[in-house]
Amino acid sequence: MSDETNETNETTMRLQKALANAGVASRRVAEEMIVAGRVRVNGQVVTELGSRVDVASDLVDVDGTAIQFDQSKRYIMLNKPTGVVSSMRDDRGRPDLRQFTKDWDERLYNVGRLDADTSGLLVLTNDGDLAHVLAHPSFGVTKVYLARVRGRVTPATIARLTRGIELEDGPIAADKARLKDASSGSATGGGASSLVELTLHSGRNRIVRRMMAEVGHPVLELVRRQFGPLHLGTLPVGRTRELTKIERGALLTLSRQPDQENQ
């Protein structure tokens, strides 16, 4: 009994207990996972039930999905409305993200940015390390956008977007581009318009708008539907929700990849 009490008061504990505390599975099931070789600690498979981990520093994953031991971390998905700047305090007095963080005691920050006139998926978190990694341009997290653009987009234009175009700050190519539909009029002011889905890993400023303007189809409306492994789904505009356990694991796995590759 005293051993359990001492173990609870330390950041170092038996691996199966750490997994159970993190909500991965019961301790018995966690033991089965360990013996089956499904658990890695700092990139190395661990099968010994007596193994101990430091939950404050060791990186643990189960079946390749990262585990977060720190229960104080919050990961929130926001469907950001247009007209809101991606800042916790705007020096020009424009609507900012504070209105969406008031329900949480933790001090949350946005992972990356969306332009004020772009809506869609934005992640808010108090995990500074994750926010830094995922927002860093060199990391190149994949993002999927839906753009309503002016004019009728042709298959040739779609091919040009994936083949690559030249902008003032260098060449750029979409990872994927797809024409979703084309109409003879639009709700944004008449005239032909098209709906284009673009997948990019670039973090350059206003990149979708600049790409579409370059090929002759200025953006009328733009929404980000996906950020890495996260999908906006049916979350209404202006609403937030906490990420599910699976989503948190997928996001943490993505953020830890550079560390694992450098080991």
Rank of each mutant, 00 (worst) to 15 (best):
N110L: 03
D54F: 08
R74D: 09
L49E: 05
R74T: 12
R74I: 09
M88E: 03
K102G: 03
D58P: 03
K80L: 06
L124R: 00
D90Y: 03
A56D: 11
G50A: 14
Y109P: 00
S72A: 15
R92C: 13
D61G: 06
V53N: 02
A56P: 07
E48G: 11
K102F: 09
V46W: 02
V35C: 06
Q99V: 11
P95H: 06
T118I: 08
L78Q: 01
Q44M: 12
V111C: 05
V53K: 03
D96S: 13
K102P: 02
I67N: 01
V62C: 08
G64T: 10
M88P: 02
R98H: 10
G43E: 06
R92I: 10
G43L: 11
I67G: 00
V45N: 08
Q44V: 13
T65Q: 14
D61F: 09
R40Y: 04
L114E: 00
L97Y: 00
R94P: 03
L49G: 08
V123K: 00
R74Y: 09
G50T: 09
S57G: 07
R74E: 13
A131G: 13
V133M: 10
R98S: 12
L108S: 01
A66K: 06
G64Y: 13
S87C: 08
Y109K: 06
E106V: 12
D105I: 12
E106Q: 15
G83M: 05
D117C: 04
D91I: 13
E106H: 03
K73F: 10
P81Y: 05
Q68K: 11
I76H: 00
R40H: 14
G43N: 11
D127E: 09
D105M: 10
I76V: 15
D127K: 05
M77S: 05
T125Q: 01
G128E: 03
G112H: 07
Y109R: 07
P95C: 10
T118D: 02
D129E: 15
D115A: 06
P95K: 04
G120D: 03
S72L: 12
I34D: 00
R107Q: 15
D103R: 11
V46I: 15
M88S: 04
D54R: 08
A116T: 07
L122C: 04
S119Y: 02
R113P: 04
R94V: 04
G37E: 05
D70K: 07
L108K: 00
E106T: 09
S57D: 11
D127H: 06
L124D: 00
P81F: 07
S72I: 08
V46R: 13
N79A: 10
G37C: 07
R40D: 01
Q99F: 04
A56Y: 11
S72Q: 12
T65R: 15
V45A: 14
W104R: 08
L124W: 01
A135S: 15
V111R: 00
S86V: 08
G120N: 03
E32G: 07
L124K: 01
R74K: 15
V41M: 14
L108Y: 00
L130P: 01
S51R: 05
D90W: 02
P81K: 09
S119F: 01
E31S: 13
Q99E: 12
E32V: 13
V60H: 05
T65K: 15
A36H: 06
F100M: 02
N126T: 12
P81Q: 09
I34K: 03
G50R: 12
D129T: 13
D61R: 10
G112V: 10
E32N: 11
V39T: 05
